[in-house]
């Protein structure tokens, strides 16, 4: 797979303040890439620079081989953007918003109709084509923006917190569109999110804090590296269990009849469970989540602003 986004030693300074300090990462074509970080970490600065709105202080940034500062128009044609804030024209209808977008991106007139139909069908808004945007709900507006971001067939779709403020059902819907898109059109999706469960299904995750990139890997590797799996057991024979754990030199915490055991792999739990099969009252195996990774590397909980 080709590298579609290349960021090398990117820095952005405002006076003496380093908003982003020497970060590097790559995104491969066709993957869903999550860019995470606490508020004020430098996420928006990075996205805005990639989207050609801001100019970088130093470093290299390329999208589909084009430099984001020197070849702005080429980059702009290759990307679609859904911002955190609504950027629709509320007085126009859904269709008019998409048509306007087509003329801005020089979509041939003969193709515009077909593409608009495709994009609206994807986000299930075909019946709302003639509706004025101002009258739509928040979730629908977000879907219109996703559709609009697609009609010029971008190579990369930037989604800045695409599901913030949406109800769980609409959120699931938006995700369904994103995955469908990635599968059918091989579009690369670059997103920021406050929901760790959403980042979990991404191919790669980058975490930025105080302007520095502090983690960049697949969700599985990050979880392996920064979190541990715990097995919680309640046993009728706590003494025997404690002896076993001590002899096996496993790290654990005892709390009455309850034991919290750190294990490397989930399969390790099987051994313990089968040994104490007859005396177990209850047990739970809990894998480390991306949320734990985030906590562990930033020292903060991710929170919706």
């Amino acid at each position: 797979m080709q590298d579609i986004i290349e960021v090398e030693h990117f820095s952005k300074r405002y006076g003496d303040f380093k908003a982003v300090d020497d970060i590097s990462f790559i995104v491969k074509e066709g993957e869903i890439f999550a860019f995470l970080g606490p508020n004020g970490a430098g996420k928006s600065t990075t996205i805005n620079t990639l989207c050609t709105i801001l100019d970088k202080t130093s470093g290299e940034m390329r999208i589909n081989g084009h430099d984001v500062s020197a070849q702005k128009d080429k980059v702009r044609k290759d990307i679609g953007i859904v911002f955190q804030e609504s950027t629709l024209d509320e007085k126009l209808t859904v269709e008019e918003n998409l048509r306007l977008h087509c003329s801005f991106y020089q979509v041939p007139k003969s193709e515009a109709e077909e593409r608009i139909r495709f994009a609206l069908a994807l986000v299930e808004l075909t019946d709302w084509r003639k509706a004025t945007v101002g009258g739509l709900s928040g979730g629908m507006k977000r879907r219109v923006e996703i559709a609009r971001g697609l009609v010029h067939f971008p190579k990369v779709l930037f989604l800045d917190e695409p599901t913030t403020g949406l109800d769980p059902q609409t959120r699931a819907g938006v995700w369904a569109y994103i995955r469908k898109l990635q599968k059918e059109k091989n579009i690369t999706v670059f997103l920021t999110t406050h929901y760790m469960d959403e980042a979990e299904i991404c191919s790669h995750v980058a975490i930025i804090d105080r302007g520095k990139l502090i983690a960049f890997d697949t969700p599985e590797n990050l979880e392996k590296q920064y979190t541990s799996t715990t097995l919680t057991i309640r046993s009728r024979e706590p003494e025997r269990m404690e002896n076993y754990l001590r002899e096996g030199a496993l790290s654990y915490q005892a709390d009455g009849g309850r034991f919290l055991v750190n294990i490397g792999k989930t399969s390790q739990a099987l051994e313990l469970l089968s040994l104490f099969r007859n005396s177990i009252i209850d047990f739970e195996v809990k894998k480390g989540s991306l949320n734990d990774v985030f906590l562990s590397v930033t020292g903060k909980e991710i929170r919706a602003s």
Binding site: C51, T52, I53, K72, D73, K74, R76, K77, I79, I81, F83, E85, S86, T87, L88, D89, H101, F104, Y105, Q106
Partner: peptide, 10 residues
């Protein structure tokens, strides 16, 4: 916010 749609267009 519509200004941003125009500003990021080619």
């Amino acid at each position: 916010g519509f200004m941003r749609e125009i500003l990021v267009a080619p």
